[in-house]
Simulated scan of single mutants.
Amino acid sequence: MKKFIGAFMTVILGLGIYAGTAGAYEYFDEPPFDKYLVSEGDTLSYIGERYSVDLDDLYRFNPHIEEEGLIAGSTINLVEDTESTERTTLSDSERDLLERLVQAEAKGENYEGKVAVAEVVFNRVDSSEFPDSVYGVIMEEGQFEPVTTGTINNSPDSEAVEAVQEALEGTNLVNSALFFWNPTTATSRWLEDKTVVTQIDNHEFLV
């Protein structure tokens, strides 16, 4: 009797395992074929041939693969992921205003320094201590000298434009820094009490 029960349970468990495996298989193998669950021994060539996806496209859809390789149990994209990764939505006028601020505040700084200035603005938008829009952050009274002096009205160069776009896409060079300054050309007892997160070119970035 015990042998019969044991055999019966083995059959039931076997069916359960089979059903679970089939469910996972159907999830990734029913149209649309947008993702693939990597199994041990899989290669990109095999996956590309199976789903009629060009090898170069697979690398483009999954840029992490070149560094990490295929990892069993992970998923890879079979189509391009078009979901936006931008950290906020900017109107055309806000983007232009931010590009002008970066141009004015970081003129003469290296490219990373320009990206970092834009990041500080986005960090302020995310902070409860500042207005919740790019326009509000930049135009807040007494915050940015170019607004007071009028240099924010100067047109941005191509590097400032690119820097804003990179910061918008989520680059993180300054962590949660909310302030920046050049300690060799500016004086501020208030900023001297802040914690330096990092220094990029001539600017210190602080919280």
Rank of each mutant, 00 (worst) to 15 (best):
D42C: 09
S133P: 04
D132V: 00
S84N: 14
D81R: 09
V207M: 12
L90I: 09
P63V: 08
T148K: 13
L97P: 06
R100E: 01
I152C: 00
I47P: 08
A24K: 13
F205M: 02
E129C: 02
T89M: 04
V197P: 04
D81A: 04
V11D: 08
G113L: 06
A72N: 09
F122T: 02
S52H: 12
K107E: 14
Y51H: 11
R87K: 14
K194L: 09
F180M: 14
S39E: 14
L58I: 05
L70P: 07
D54P: 03
L178K: 11
W190C: 00
N202D: 10
L101M: 01
L206I: 03
Q199Y: 00
E162L: 04
P183K: 12
D126N: 01
S133E: 06
L70D: 07
A116W: 02
E83L: 08
Y25D: 15
E49P: 03
F180D: 06
G14T: 13
D81K: 11
G142I: 06
V196D: 06
E145L: 13
E140G: 09
N110G: 13
E159A: 06
P156I: 12
I5S: 12
D42P: 07
S176P: 00
N123V: 03
E141F: 00
G108R: 05
P183F: 03
T198V: 11
L90C: 09
R87A: 05
F179N: 14
V120A: 15
R189V: 13
S91E: 10
T88L: 15
E169A: 12
N62T: 10
Y18C: 13
Y18H: 05
S127I: 02
H203T: 04
D96P: 01
D193Q: 00
S127E: 07
F144V: 05
R87L: 12
T195G: 01
V137H: 08
T195F: 00
K2S: 08
G69T: 09
G142V: 04
H203Y: 11
A22L: 15
K35V: 14
P32L: 00
G16A: 14
G150N: 08
D81Q: 09
E94I: 02
F179K: 14
E80F: 04
L178G: 03
S188V: 04
E141P: 01
F4N: 11
S127L: 05
L178F: 02
S45V: 07
E141S: 10
G150K: 05
S84D: 15
F130D: 07
R124K: 09
V197T: 12
G48R: 07
Y51I: 03
D96G: 03
L58Y: 03
G73W: 04
L101T: 02
A118S: 11
L97F: 02
G69A: 10
D96V: 01
T21Q: 14
E80Y: 06
E119Q: 15
N154T: 12
E112G: 01
I71A: 10
S91P: 07
V134S: 07
Q165V: 05
L191M: 15
T149I: 10
D201Q: 09
T85D: 15
F61K: 11
G41K: 02
E68C: 01
A106S: 13
